[in-house]
Design a protein around this nucleic acid. Structure first.
Lengths: 225, 225
DNA sequence: CGTGCATTTGATAGCTATCAAAGAAGGTGG
DNA sequence: CCACCTTCTTTGATAGCTATCAAATGCACG
C-alpha cells in the first residue's frame, strides 16, 4: 500500500483527491466543506469539517463531489481500501474508523432533520449552536465563534438563499440573541433562547431547566455541517 | 457476549431495542422506518429500510428515536459494542459493517441533498426513483412499486405535508409519468422524465442519452429513505 | 484610498403549510 | 356478501414564508 497523500490548500482551493477509489481524508488543520455540484448549477454543502475530523469521499460521485478548503489547511488522504487493508492487522483502528463513520452518519441524520423542517430561523439557530459546540470558545458569558465559511456556504448547507441567511442573522441581532463583527465573528448571548428558537426544546423545558440539570443533559440533535 | 435478540413486529408496531447501548439491527424481512419525535410533536423519518438492511440506532437519542415496522418484519439486534467485540476476530466482518455504515452515510447525505433543495416535485420524483431502485420490479415497460409506507410517512421523510405529497402524486398522474392503484401500488412509466423532474439530469442529458449510454451510467444521487 | 466582492436591505411573486371538507380504501361485524 | 365505520387520501381556498430580482451598503485587500 502507498502512504497517505499529504495536501495543503488555501481558502476556497479544492483538495484534489484520487478519483480512482473511495478516499478517507483526515483533516490535520483548518476547515473544509464537502460540496456537491447540482445539475442545475446549484451547490449543496453536505458537511463542514474541522481539525481532527475524518471525511469519507465516495468514488461514485467523484466528479460531482469536491472537498474545498475554507481556510489554510493540511490533510492526509488514503484510498479507503488500502487503508483498511493495513488496518486489518489492528482491530482497534478499524473500530475507530467505524466509530467515526457512525458519528458522521449521526451528523448527517441530524442535518436531514434540520433540512426536513422548513423554518429558516430554526435552521440558523441550530447551525449556530452546532458551530458553537464545534469551534466556539467562551468569552465572558458569551460563546464566541469565528465562522470560516461565508453566508453563501451557510445557505448552501441549510438549503436557504444567502439573503434569507442574512435576514435571519439580522433578526437574531435585533433580538439581542447574538452579536456580529465583520463577516466571520459571532457572539452567542443566550444559548437557552437559541435552543428554543432551534426547536430543540420547548419554553417549558427551559423554565424547569433553570433549577435542575445542566444544558448538556438536555442536548438535542445538533450537528456539524 | 449475548446472542442477538430476535424480534417480530407487525404494521406500525415499534421494534423495542435495548436502550442501554448503541444497537445494530439487521432486518431479515419486511420494511421499517427510523423516526425521531420532535419536541413540537412533529415526526421526522430518518430512513426507510428493507430486507437485508442494517440499521444503526445510537443510544444517545434513545427515547426520541424509534424503529417502527411498516409491515410484518423480523429483525435481529445486537449491542454495537458486543457485536464488534466478537467481530474483532474477523476483520472481514468489521469491513463489511464499515462498508454498510459508509453506505448508510451516503444515503443520509443524499437525503440531505434532497431536503436541501426546496421543490416538492423534485423530492417526490427522487423518492420514487429511489424506491424503484430498492423495491421496484419490472412490469412490462413500467416499474411497479408496492409502497409499504403511508403518504404521511413519505411526507415526514421528505419534509413535506401529507397534502403536498398527495398533490404531487396527482400531478405526476396527470402528466402520465406514473399510475397508481389503491394506497400502495405505483407504476413508473418513464424513468427518464422522472429523472429530469427529480433534478438528476437536465433535459439535454436525456436527449443525448438516447443514442449512447444506459441510464445506470448517468445515475445521480438517489437514496433509500 | 479605491476596487471588487460579500453582505444587507427592500419589494414582489411563487410555493407550500394550514385549515376545511369531501371522497376512497380497507377492515369489521352482522 | 354487504353495510358500516374508521382511517387515509384527495381536493379546495387562503395565509405565510422564502426565493427571486434589484439596489445599496460595508468589508477586506491590494
Amino acid at each position: 500500500m502507498e502512504m497517505g497523500e499529504f495536501h495543503r490548500a488555501g481558502r476556497s482551493q479544492e483538495i484534489m483527491l484520487d478519483a480512482r477509489s473511495d478516499q478517507l481524508v483526515f483533516l490535520a488543520d483548518g476547515a473544509t466543506k464537502l460540496v456537491i455540484q447540482m445539475p442545475d448549477g446549484g451547490e449543496q454543502v453536505l458537511s463542514f469539517h474541522f481539525a481532527g475530523d475524518m471525511v469519507h469521499v465516495p468514488q461514485r460521485a467523484g466528479d460531482r463531489l469536491r472537498l474545498v478548503a475554507l481556510d489554510d489547511c493540511r490533510t492526509i488522504s488514503f484510498s479507503t481500501n488500502d487503508f483498511l487493508d493495513v488496518a486489518e492487522d489492528d482491530p482497534k483502528v478499524l473500530r475507530t474508523i467505524l466509530a467515526r463513520a457512525l458519528m458522521a452518519l449521526q451528523h448527517s441524520r441530524n442535518k436531514a432533520i434540520r433540512l426536513g423542517r422548513k423554518a429558516a430561523h430554526e435552521r440558523i439557530a441550530d447551525f449556530l449552536l452546532a458551530m458553537a459546540d464545534r469551534i466556539g470558545v467562551r468569552d465572558g458569558t458569551d460563546i464566541r465563534i469565528e465562522l470560516p465559511m461565508s453566508r453563501r456556504d451557510i445557505g448552501h448547507s441549510l438549503g436557504l438563499t444567502i439573503e434569507t441567511v442574512s435576514r435571519q442573522f439580522t433578526e437574531l441581532r435585533d433580538s439581542h440573541l447574538i452579536a456580529t463583527s465583520g463577516r466571520s465573528l459571532v457572539w452567542l448571548h443566550d444559548l437557552d433562547k437559541l435552543s428554543v428558537r432551534a426547536g430543540h426544546v420547548s419554553d417549558k423545558e427551559i423554565e424547569s431547566k433553570n433549577c435542575a440539570t445542566s444544558n448538556k443533559d438536555l442536548a438535542s440533535p445538533t450537528m456539524v455541517g
